[in-house]
Computed example of a mutant assay.
Amino acid sequence: MNASRRLFQLARRSGPAALLGLTLSVATAQAQGGPIPPADIPDGAAPADPLSLAPLLVPEQTDPAALLKTGKSDPAAPRPTEGRPRPGLTLEAKLLDGGPSIPKGVIWRVFAKQPGADGRLPLIQETQGGTVNLPLKNGDYIIHAAYGRAGTLKEVSVGGGEEHDTLVLNAGGLKLDALVGKDQSPLPNLVKFDVFASDSPTTEERAPVVSGLRDDELVRLNAGTYHIVSRYGDANAIARADVRVEAGKLTEMRMFHQAARITLKLVSETGGEALANTSWTVMTPAGETVFDSAGAFPDAVLAIGDYTAIAKHDNQIHERNFKVEPGLNREIEVLTK
């Protein structure tokens, strides 16, 4: 990993050791995601909250589930006065084996084991909560639990009476942010992150697990190694890295962009007014076009390097070579004479 894609990750643990130490390396092991649900199981996120993002709250002592909980009230979550067993199937979800139950925000889906006439597994019931009690007829079912983008499934048999089962999601949380150069904050709303399952050489040719994440958003994922693609602007400023998400932990990763925003102006004299009705192309020394636009003040975030700005105005072509340095946002004037 070169200097243009340095990163660090901080993982917070539960219990007395509230914070894990600073880590300067990135795991490159193969992804170890959770079980893959049948194709007809809907997306794991809640319809009203696609990523179930939550603010980061890390008290002195907490449990893994509290690190990743939502801020919403959840009428389906059990209250202390509701602790007595009830007839039916009681389900609870955990981030990791032996950990505490997730108190809220789990999407539970119950499917019949046998496919219907259309070849799909019929959805019997869907609910949201932490620990839930579902009245089900005797028989075999497939239970799917989703927590953000983390999910798992399990086959269960219901025989009547009070029954209980636990699904272990083997999941953690991931929170991303970025800097420009060594220590500059990027321009607002211009950095996005795509998260890919890092399980093949052609990772980015597949659909991302999560796309368009913003700075400081938190997403829940099955434990494993993920490939992160961070884009600063819409041109060629891209950083890539791998990160490992561990069950029951919140992992933070920072990525560094070596780029800057350039604003282009076609002027008749240095410091003069920008000429309207101008078409622009920015090319690399190898002849690759990285930016096209039109107008008096087009701007783009470009990766560091050498470029040529080509302006077309009144059927005349004007050019200027320029260099992009990390974090140095500036105007580039192209003279008509």
Rank of each mutant, 00 (worst) to 15 (best):
T270N: 11
T270Y: 12
G271K: 06
G271W: 00
G271E: 02
G271P: 12
G272M: 00
G272I: 04
E273K: 10
E273Y: 10
E273F: 11
A274Y: 01
L275M: 03
L275T: 02
L275Q: 09
L275D: 09
A276L: 13
A276C: 06
A276K: 01
A276H: 12
N277C: 04
N277W: 09
N277T: 04
N277E: 04
T278M: 15
T278I: 04
S279N: 14
S279K: 07
S279W: 07
S279G: 11
S279V: 00
S279T: 04
W280Y: 07
W280R: 03
T281W: 01
T281P: 12
T281M: 14
T281S: 15
T281L: 14
T281D: 13
V282S: 05
V282W: 01
V282L: 14
V282M: 03
V282A: 13
M283H: 11
M283L: 09
M283E: 14
M283C: 04
M283F: 08
T284E: 02
T284P: 03
T284I: 08
P285T: 12
P285A: 06
P285C: 01
P285G: 04
P285N: 03
A286V: 02
A286C: 07
G287I: 06
E288M: 13
E288P: 08
E288Y: 10
E288F: 10
T289G: 11
T289E: 15
T289M: 15
T289Q: 14
V290R: 07
F291R: 04
F291E: 06
D292K: 13
D292W: 08
D292H: 08
D292Y: 00
S293K: 13
S293C: 08
A294H: 05
A294M: 02
A294R: 11
A294N: 14
G295D: 15
G295W: 02
G295T: 11
A296L: 09
F297W: 06
F297E: 09
P298V: 05
P298N: 06
P298E: 08
D299T: 07
A300R: 02
A300F: 05
A300W: 02
V301K: 01
V301I: 14
V301M: 05
L302D: 03
L302A: 00
L302F: 10
L302Y: 08
A303H: 04
A303N: 07
A303S: 13
A303V: 00
A303D: 03
A303R: 00
A303T: 05
I304A: 15
I304P: 03
I304F: 07
G305P: 04
G305F: 10
G305Q: 04
D306S: 10
Y307T: 02
Y307Q: 01
Y307H: 05
Y307E: 01
Y307F: 06
Y307D: 00
T308I: 09
T308C: 08
A309W: 06
A309F: 11
A309M: 02
A309Q: 12
A309I: 04
I310N: 10
I310E: 07
A311T: 01
K312E: 09
K312V: 07
K312D: 05
K312I: 01
D314V: 02
D314S: 14
D314R: 14
D314C: 08
N315A: 12
N315M: 06
N315R: 11
N315F: 02
N315I: 03
